[in-house]
Amino acid sequence: MKVLITGVAGFIGFHVARRLLSEGWQVLGLDSLNDYYDPALKQARLALLRPQAGFRFAGADLADRSAMEALFADQPFDRVIHLAAQAGVRYSLENPHAYVDANLAGLLNVLEGCRAQQVAHLVYASSSSVYGLNTQVPFAESDAVDHPVSLYAATKKSGELLAHSYSHLYGLPATGLRFFTVYGPWGRPDMAPIKFARAISAGEAIDVYNQGDMSRDFTYIDDIVEGVVQVLDQIPAAQPGWTPEQGSRGQSSAPYRIFNIGAGQPVGLLDFIQTLEAALGVQARKNFLPMQPGDVARTWASTEALRQQTGFSPAVGLEEGVGKFVDWYRAYYGPSV
């Protein structure tokens, strides 16, 4: 089986590629290796993939239409896993065009490639951020997601709509995965776990927003990868009897599905910090601040739809996951970085 993985040098893409390579897949990994965060970390991930049998790398920008057309014309793919995106909520407040280029124009190029090649299944990354102003928890795929609070979230919601239109018009089977606060080894340095670990290890204060009154459905990377792998062969079929008035918003009359992938267990931000403190063996100094623009107070995933479809439920607990993250952090960055 041949698979295209976009964002292969990113946090999730790297782990998905390693998993599929270990199972004998042929992986073409695409990444622009941009400098949104330290490219050295992306190169270090890539260095672990390059020697593996069945792996090839293509350096290209998703928004480069000609490059993407050439990539899809070069060879057929059995599956496409689209994980590349411009991430980060706060960065979107200052750099909105980067999000439209990567998350909309880039996705459109992937959809066009899948349409032209008649790819059997497109699996793409969405985000828990699409739930926006929703307050009813846990967040379920049947919920309306019409009120995003950041441009990043708006582009992810727009991406779901683009994918649905291609499923409806061209019969492209597409599955969107709404990831909830992913953490673990090889994580992004702009996210809280590494920012916190670095500051705590250095004896510096960490910024704690909304006075600490926040919770997140922290999901360990291995559970995210398992969810992605589980849905690869769960190719959505058209449901002619489905209607918007009676059906779940996570489904369609087209061959289209949406699933949450989260631990299904929200954790208070202060509890997460306490768990990280215990793993590091250092107590944090905390700088309590108001809520940031574009942020939400809590996230919590309903994982019932994923369980019913695949039989899989995320299983890695917070203490175990944070412990593995800290072990990697110290091995990669050093004990006092």
Results as ranks from 00 to 15, higher is better:
A305L: 08
A174Q: 03
A67P: 12
V100F: 15
A301M: 10
A60M: 04
V8K: 03
L122C: 06
G29P: 00
V231E: 04
G241V: 09
P76D: 03
G311P: 12
K42G: 03
V89S: 07
Y124W: 00
P138K: 06
A144L: 11
L169K: 15
L30A: 11
L162N: 13
L172M: 06
G176N: 03
I258Y: 13
A70G: 04
L111T: 01
A315E: 15
S165A: 13
Y166M: 10
W300L: 05
D327H: 07
N210T: 05
E226N: 07
V145M: 10
D327Q: 09
Q52P: 01
I81Y: 02
F55A: 04
T243W: 11
F259Y: 12
V208C: 13
V282Q: 07
R198C: 10
D233S: 15
T243N: 12
K2F: 01
P266F: 15
A238V: 04
Y209E: 13
G262T: 13
L107Y: 10
V145E: 13
Q234M: 04
T310S: 10
Y91K: 05
P266D: 12
A47M: 11
R249C: 11
A98D: 06
K195M: 15
L177N: 03
P236F: 01
A331N: 06
A102M: 06
A174P: 00
W242K: 08
Y220F: 14
M214F: 09
H147S: 12
A140S: 15
L28Y: 02
L62E: 11
K156N: 09
K324E: 15
F14M: 01
A47N: 10
Y220M: 05
L161A: 14
V267R: 14
R18T: 04
A63I: 05
A163I: 02
F55P: 00
I235R: 10
L33A: 02
Q239M: 14
